[in-house]
Design a protein around this nucleic acid. Structure first.
Lengths: 228, 228
DNA sequence: GTCTATAAACAGATAGAC
DNA sequence: GTCTATCTGTTTATAGAC
């Protein structure tokens, strides 16, 4: 047990620049200490609130209430509002990234490149809009948070960006995708279209699966190299 | 001259629910009264600030400074921060709408439907990212403002939405666009991709024209009805 | 119409009891 | 670890002089 090191609050330790130990939950183990559980409860509450209210309208008091505690108590677990936002965003990216990677595993070997791309786009969009507070929050927060957090976010998402960049570039290299477009811009436009869907998507207007399917199809058909 | 009616401030009159007379600038005439000019200067300043800082970080004091006046003075022209935001958004939609409609006029008769659609998408995206504070502001504000303003915004944009809905539906009806996709979703995804571009687009990474061209091409090629 | 000064409200953050 | 109480800084908005 490293409980001995727990002489002060997690937030205080973080403020001192001490490296954050990997959370047990992140290591795939069952959640452990009470502090750990409470922290998770606060994060869930924050994601819930941010997803619905956006950045500027979300009050720490809202988050505290949702997590069933007093506002001041949050500061035992997080050093500031900003840290809370950053953590929600980090977790959000992580979840989409994980979903897409997991989907990759399930695609049979030998599946044509373009079809692979289509399935992954579909997965990405579905994960975003399919009732996950973290991913909903992240999409809403992205355009709103202060530049510093945006930078931090892109740092978090770099690996993920790299995945998409790789997929698109390989597609071009192999001749499956048309060579005469700027894939950087296309990548951002595709990711943007999906992120933005959080703003307008309502389950009432049709199932997420259909939206995802139509979008992925349009995208890959529009990018597919054509004989003509 | 209706200066006689100007016994009180524009903001006060608006608060009383009096219908706002159409601005001379909107009627295509040259800007007129000093009040009118100042109001325009404030709006420009607000667009400038909102485009760069987003909703929550934009302070009335920033806007006032940009407009070269004191914060308190703003209230002679606008009843509240919210009214200012709403006006910027309204003007922003108006400008994109106007640009796309203007572009429609210049497309030669007999241009194939799909090509028309491509040109208009290009125009829409270009207008958004090509250094216009109002359109930049609007894209950034959309996901951030309180629900009430979002509703008001969609009301403003209804005509514009209708334009795109019409274009896509006609394309489907005539057989130019594939019939087996949900055009409502596609419409939102396309508009979203474009709106989101404000967040990531930087002129350094390549000219806006190229981004617009590649996007429009991907979209229409992905939607085009195909013989196969 | 614009300025200065200030009221009113509030959010984020901290301190100390328990 | 959480609570209560409070401080501090900001911001929107108003009042009244000019």
């Amino acid at each position: 047990m490293d409980e001995a090191a727990q002489q002060t609050s997690p937030a205080k330790r973080a403020r001192k620049g001490a490296p954050r130990p990997p959370r047990r939950a992140e290591r795939g183990e069952t959640p452990a200490s009470k502090s750990e559980q409470t922290r998770a409860r606060i994060l869930d509450a924050a994601a819930f609130v941010f997803a619905r209210k956006g950045y500027s309208d979300a009050r720490l008091s809202d988050i505290a209430r949702t997590a069933r505690m007093q506002t001041g108590s949050l500061y035992y677990h997080f050093a500031s509002r900003e840290e809370l936002v950053a953590e929600v965003m980090r977790a959000g990216v992580e979840q989409v990234h994980a979903a897409v990677r997991a989907r990759m595993e399930t695609i049979p070997e030998g599946t044509p490149e373009v079809e692979r791309l289509r399935l992954l786009l579909e997965c990405h969009l579905l994960t975003l809009i399919d009732e996950n507070d973290y991913t909903r929050a992240i999409s809403r927060l992205l355009g709103q948070v202060p530049p510093r957090l945006q930078l931090q976010h892109s740092a978090n998402g770099r690996q993920f960006m790299a995945l998409w960049r790789g997929l698109l570039r390989e597609g071009q290299a192999s001749g499956a995708l048309r060579a005469d477009v700027d894939m950087s811009a296309i990548r951002m436009l595709l990711l943007g279209a999906m992120s933005w869907s959080i703003v307008w998507f309502k389950p009432e207007n049709g199932p997420a699966e259909l939206v995802a399917r139509d979008f992925a199809r349009m995208a890959v058909d529009g990018l597919r190299a054509r004989p003509d």
